[in-house]
Design a protein around this nucleic acid. Structure first.
Length: 354
DNA sequence: GAGACGAAGGTAGCCTTGAG
DNA sequence: CTCAAGGCTACCTTCGTCTC
């Protein structure tokens, strides 16, 4: 909504007049006050018409500028605010913005409960907390895990725009394994967050290239690309990650039943925060509980399970048990045998050591 | 950089409506 | 009858774009 400078001067003047409750303000008083203000700030000495001030009051009363000023007329001629604390200058962000945020928050709420929209729950809570903070000017009451220093966050917006506009992009990328960065055309389909790290799924413009998963922190630059966007015709991303923990997944990989035991003290953590939405409780006794999940075997699954250390034992499938054993043996060896060390004077001094 | 031009938006004036 | 509110429209101003 375009508002010119003169109009803003008039709104502020009317606001200041109506805040001064020692004087009774008629329409003519407001016209005079606005005329004076325009002369003072803009050198305009032609005054301002009755109709213009009426329109200004109407505009201030409306929500078009987010003011919704409670202007009332007493005794058929005296203008005042019904709320003596009201001022158009009080809004930390304008009320229209607030309303838009509230509406968006309400809209996102509708998606709560759908599995593939679970990420939105978090966003809605963040949004609501932000809005609450703006409304009350108090400190946030929800603190979310975040890592502002994470590399690659700057690419999120440019990638999101490219996906929405269905435009191919040119990405310069260097994986942790690669010695040198390479540049290629890319059609992005999905931005995905896992454990505070962002990934981009799509296809590189190389012949017969399968679906590729790029970590945003390894992207060095993004530019526009002349190639036509390659549409995603085969993958339904709303269910693509349903059989998987994390983001690592190769095409054609089949899920399997992973069975694991968790000790009695830690089982409640697994019950209240399931490793996967397919998690089932198979059996329990006083020592612990046995669960199963149906997922594909990948790096993230292994890492998740290893994270429980001695509190968990994988029971199946056999190949995973073997892998876990091998990893844990290697972990033990890392502590037992001669390995990398840090000179004593470089070690941080912790109270707990002394 | 200056001037011409058109589009968009702002303002004024006239008018009607409706409440008290 | 008075006055606030608001619809309609002509005119004015401002701003961006184009051309020289």
């Amino acid at each position: 909504m375009p508002v010119n400078r003169n109009a803003l001067i008039r709104y502020r003047t009317i606001d200041q007049c109506l805040q001064n409750r020692h004087k009774k303000w008629t329409l003519d008083d407001l016209i005079d006050a606005c005329g004076e203000a325009l002369y003072e700030y803009q050198g305009i000495d032609t005054g301002v018409s009755r109709r213009t001030i009426q329109a200004d009051i109407e505009m201030m009363r409306s929500n078009k500028l987010g003011y919704e000023a409670p202007i009332i007329v007493l005794d058929k001629k005296y203008y005042t605010y019904s709320d003596k604390n009201y001022s158009i200058a009080n809004s930390p962000i304008n009320q229209q913005d607030m309303q838009v945020l509230s509406e968006v928050s309400g809209l996102l709420k509708q998606f709560k409960g759908f599995n593939h929209f679970t990420d939105l729950n978090e966003m809605v809570s963040k949004l609501e907390d932000k809005i609450y903070t703006q409304k009350t000017q108090s400190a946030p009451v929800i603190d979310f895990e975040k890592n502002d220093n994470l590399k690659g966050l700057e690419w999120i917006e440019v990638i999101r725009k490219a996906i929405v506009a269905r435009k191919a992009i040119s990405i310069t990328y260097q994986s942790f394994k690669a010695r040198e960065a390479s540049t290629f055309g890319f059609s992005g389909y999905l931005l995905k967050e896992y454990r505070n790290r962002w990934f981009l799924l799509g296809v590189a413009h190389v012949r017969n290239q399968p679906l590729l998963n790029l970590a945003l922190d390894r992207i060095q630059s993004i530019a526009t690309h002349e190639d036509a966007y390659r549409e995603n015709t085969s993958i339904d991303f709303s269910v693509y990650y349903n059989d998987c923990i994390g983001v690592t997944k190769s095409p054609g990989q089949r899920d399997c039943e992973v069975v694991f035991w968790v000790d009695a003290a830690n089982a409640p953590y697994v019950i209240t925060k399931p490793l996967h939405h397919t998690q089932k409780l198979l059996s329990e006794d006083e020592t612990g509980k046995i669960f199963s999940i149906r997922v594909i075997m990948n790096f993230e699954l292994e890492r998740e399970l290893l994270g429980f250390g001695s509190k968990m034992r994988v029971l199946g499938p056999r190949i995973l048990v073997k892998q876990m054993k091998a990893q844990l043996l290697k972990t033990l060896q890392n502590y037992d045998t001669e390995g990398p060390t840090l000179a004593a004077d470089k070690l941080p001094l912790n109270k707990i050591d002394s």
